[in-house]
């Protein structure tokens, strides 16, 4: 395998890992499978288009503002929609997320049409290639995706392990009843988990948009990252990263050595194999799966 292929695997892993973080965060804390995650990622990318239009001379401010909007969007989704699903059947909550996805797709077309937008062009940035090793080049946006994914995973690890809110989040995920009895405000924790989830989704959407633009079909990338989260285990962040690497490597091997058309199918083939052997995913918790 050439070094360029390794670089391609790393970039695709970063894309899937950053997107699947959101699936894991929401599932781990509230046991809800968010099937609108791809659409939320797409809206995050469109938010960058909006902020880039307002602050074209200050890309950092535009990025920061869009990321904050992404965080707020998740909290709003929880407060307006998901909060009312507390105590209801998990399936009902999942169906709500499907409806939310359809709604977001429709709204984004109404607001941004079906035109392709390039936030990088609005900033006057050309996304140059970066030489990461002799004979190995990736785009600057892809490099940013890899770095940011590492930062997000590192940040989440520290947050969940060592901060009060992180511990509350884990407690709410493990035993909500006991957590509430110990004074943890579940709605606050859930809302924050949704906010973090859409924040990471928005980051992924923004970087993808900086790399190759955004249009109304971007949400499908979210669907492609879903097998990565499942392969790793839906309640494990480490699993999401490793699952992403497995799926990305399989996909790139299929493109390079078998048939590019298989790249769409391979993530789901990997998923089927893993689920057949270990239905709760490579690093997932068996107990949690039984509960679902």
């Amino acid at each position: 395998m050439s070094l360029q292929l390794v670089a391609n695997v790393v970039v695709l892993t970063a894309i899937y890992a950053l997107v699947s973080t959101g699936y894991v965060l929401v599932y781990r804390v509230s046991r809800v499978l968010n099937l609108a995650h791809g659409e939320l990622m797409m809206v995050g990318a469109y938010l960058l288009v909006a902020t880039a239009g307002m602050f074209s001379g200050d890309p950092l401010l535009a990025l920061l503002l869009a990321a904050i909007c992404g965080l707020v969007m998740g909290i709003v989704v929880y407060v307006v929609l998901m909060r009312w699903m507390t105590g209801e059947a998990v399936l009902a909550a999942v169906l709500i997320t499907i409806a939310l996805g359809i709604l977001l797709r429709g709204l984004s077309i109404l607001i941004w049409t079906t035109q392709q937008f390039y936030p990088a062009a609005i900033f006057g940035w050309h996304n140059p290639p970066v030489k990461v090793a002799p004979g190995v080049q990736i785009s600057a946006a892809s490099l940013a995706m890899v770095v940011l994914t590492i930062v997000v995973y590192g940040g989440l690890f520290i947050f969940l392990q060592f901060t009060r809110w992180g511990v509350r989040m884990r407690a709410a995920g493990q035993n909500p009843l006991l957590a509430e009895q110990r004074g943890i405000r579940l709605h606050g924790v859930y809302a924050f988990a949704w906010g973090l989830s859409t924040f990471t989704a928005a980051l992924a959407g923004m970087l993808l948009a900086l790399d190759s633009g955004v249009e109304s079909t971007m949400a499908t990338i979210g669907l492609k990252a879903f097998p990565a989260a499942l392969v790793g285990g839906l309640d494990s962040l480490l699993g999401a990263a490793i699952g992403s690497a497995i799926v990305a490597a399989a996909e790139i091997a299929a493109i390079q050595y078998v048939n590019p058309l298989l790249s769409d199918v391979v993530p789901f083939v990997v998923l089927l194999i893993v689920l057949a052997i270990r239905p709760w995913g490579l690093f997932g918790s068996r107990e949690q799966l039984d509960r679902v």
Binding site: L5, Y16, S142, D264
Partner: peptide, 17 residues
Amino acid sequence: VEFIPPTAADYTPFATK
């Protein structure tokens, strides 16, 4: 000859080939 699915998250692997 590369037939690239519309759902591709990254076009670099196809371009590499």
